[in-house]
Every structure is written in C-alpha cells, then in structure tokens.
C-alpha cells in the first residue's frame, strides 16, 4: 500500500510539474508577451524597457527556472488589469466555484442514486425504458443550452427563481441543477448496468431462495456492490465537472473562477488565465489522486496493477 501511495503521489507531482511547464511554454512561444502587455500606442523603447523589466531578454531556460521558482512561491505574476496578484484573484473566486461544483456533485449522485433505484425497484419496464431514454437525450443536450432552457422556464416564464448572480439558496438552484445533470445520463447508465450485473449473481439467487423480499435484496445486497463503480466514476468526473463550471458560470453570471478565466481571455489578461488554468488543473490532479487512493484502499487489485 505504501508503495502504491508513493507511486501515485509522485505521479501527481510529476503531472502538476508537466502542466506548469506546458503552460509556460505555451504562453512564451506564442509571441512576445511584452508586446501583448503594452497598449497599442506603446513605442519600441517602451516595449524594450518592459522586456528587461519582466526578464524577457534572458535565455528561455533562465526564464523557465525563474517561472518555476516563482510558481513554487505562489507568485504567478500580476493581473494586467488591476495590478493585483493573479493567483490572489483566482483564489478569491474559488469558493464560488467550489460551492457550485460540490453542490452539483452531491446533487448529481443523489439524483442518479434515486432514479437508478426507482428504475430497479419498479416493476414497470416502460418506466425503465423512458428513464434510460431521458438519460440518453440529456447527454445530447449541451450544458449551456440546458441552463438557458431552465432560465427560460423558471426565471422568465414562471418567475420562480433568479437567473443570475450568487446569493442565497435560490440563486444556487438553477446552476447546480444544470451542472448536476451534466453527467447524470452517464451515471444513470453505469449504475443501471452495474445493478443489472449484480442481478445475475449467485448471492442474489440465494437471497431469493431464502424468501427475502425484492426491495430488501435490492437495498441490502445489490446496492452496496453497485455503488462502488458509481462513486468512482463520479469522483473521476469531478474533473469534468470542473470544466463544466466554466460554461455554467458564464450562463448564470456566477462569479467563480471559470467565469474569471473566460473574462480574462477577452481582456487578454494572461497572468490571470495562467493562474486560473494552473489552479483548476492542480485541483483536478488532486481529486484524481484522492479517488485513486480511496479506490486502492477499497479494492486491493488496483494497488497491484
């Protein structure tokens, strides 16, 4: 187990290092940052002065090492717009993003759990088919359009819920629902497949032979086994969810890190984009590490592979 943990932690550190490197070269090789940072009317001397100031006249390797050293100290440069720490700006917005992502994560699992169980327990084949179809259809709808339809129905037509901004619970309902259903179709199909697989197992037949009720067999015996794959996939998809927040935050004007990144792109605020991408990637890598470690704890086969 110790070897497994060490290997996975090292792997994650290496990945984060790779992401930092990739982002650095992406930004450096794409053009002269100094020219991008200055207003259009800046003279050649102005740009040259800025280049020296930013250390851009030094060899690329030196710049890279400096970037790494600064990044290790949590310094990713200053926002070009309001001259404050880029990393600080991103971190300031992070609680909003995490609030949205975690609510959606829990809501998504709860929904998949409830609907999947309903599908298993009901004897109606029609209901099952309808729900699977609905899951399939949801997967084909782009997340931002789904959010827009929710706004149209609940904010514009019915006037029940606010359509934008962050505030109380009411503000959270629509964005969280939008994001929660993002991967619901996938969860539901996986959960259904896992349950169907348990259905044919010997222990289920034994339970029937003992005369146990269907409800009890599903809840007591099949559910714990079918839950593991669902939770794993949900954990892995927490990263996909983080990507989904970028779009969802824009739809609902949710003041999170994703929206900050999108706004920074249109304002050409590179340090903030870099900081945002790095922070979200680090969270993503960390979540994947946690999911793997937990899974390794639960299933010994994973540790040895």
């Amino acid at each position: 187990m110790l070897w497994f943990v060490t290997r996975r932690v090292l792997q994650s550190v290496l990945t984060v290092f790779g992401v930092v490197t990739a982002v650095f070269f992406l930004v450096r090789l794409s053009g002269d940052p100094a020219a991008l940072l200055m207003p259009v009317e800046a003279t050649t001397e102005d740009i040259a002065r800025l280049r020296t100031e930013l250390g851009l006249d030094q060899p690329l390797l030196v710049q890279y090492l400096k970037f790494l050293a600064n990044a290790a100290h949590g310094d990713l440069g200053q926002s070009l717009r309001n001259r404050t720490s880029a990393l600080g700006l991103v971190i300031e917005r992070l609680p909003a993003t995490l609030e949205l992502a975690l609510t959606a994560f829990v809501l998504g699992i709860a929904l998949a759990f409830a609907i999947g169980l309903l599908m298993r327990l009901s004897s109606s084949q029609k209901l099952r088919t309808t729900l699977l179809w609905a899951a399939f259809i949801r997967q084909a709808i782009p997340v931002f359009w789904f959010g827009l339809l929710l706004i149209l129905l609940f904010s514009v037509t019915l006037r029940w819920l606010p359509s934008l901004g962050r505030g109380g619970i009411a503000n959270l309902i629509l964005p969280a629902t939008t994001l929660a259903t993002y991967e619901l179709g996938l969860y539901l199909r996986l959960f259904n497949a896992a349950m169907a697989e348990e259905e044919g197992q010997d222990y289920v037949r034994t339970a029937y032979a003992k005369g146990q009720s269907r409800t009890k067999i599903v809840l007591r015996h099949m559910l714990p086994n079918a839950l593991l794959p669902l939770i794993t996939i949900a954990g892995i998809n927490l990263g996909v969810l983080l990507g989904g927040t970028v779009v969802t935050e824009t739809v609902f004007s949710w003041p999170g890190a994703g929206r900050l990144i999108v706004q920074s792109v249109s304002q050409r605020d590179y340090p903030v984009i870099v900081a945002g991408v790095l922070v979200i990637s680090v969270i993503f890598v960390f979540v994947n590490l946690m999911v793997d470690l937990i899974y390794g704890l639960l299933d010994p086969r994973v540790r040895l592979s």
Partner: peptide, 20 residues
Amino acid sequence: ADLQLSIPRVLLLIAVTAVV
C-alpha cells in the same frame, strides 16, 4: 496523453485560444 487529460479539455482549449 495522461498529461493532456490532466487539464479539463474546455480549460485547455480556452488557454490555448487565449494565446493563439
């Protein structure tokens, strides 16, 4: 491939678009 998958795809595309 693993490295590329460690950045959410939308985010990766946004970052590159911002530059190019």
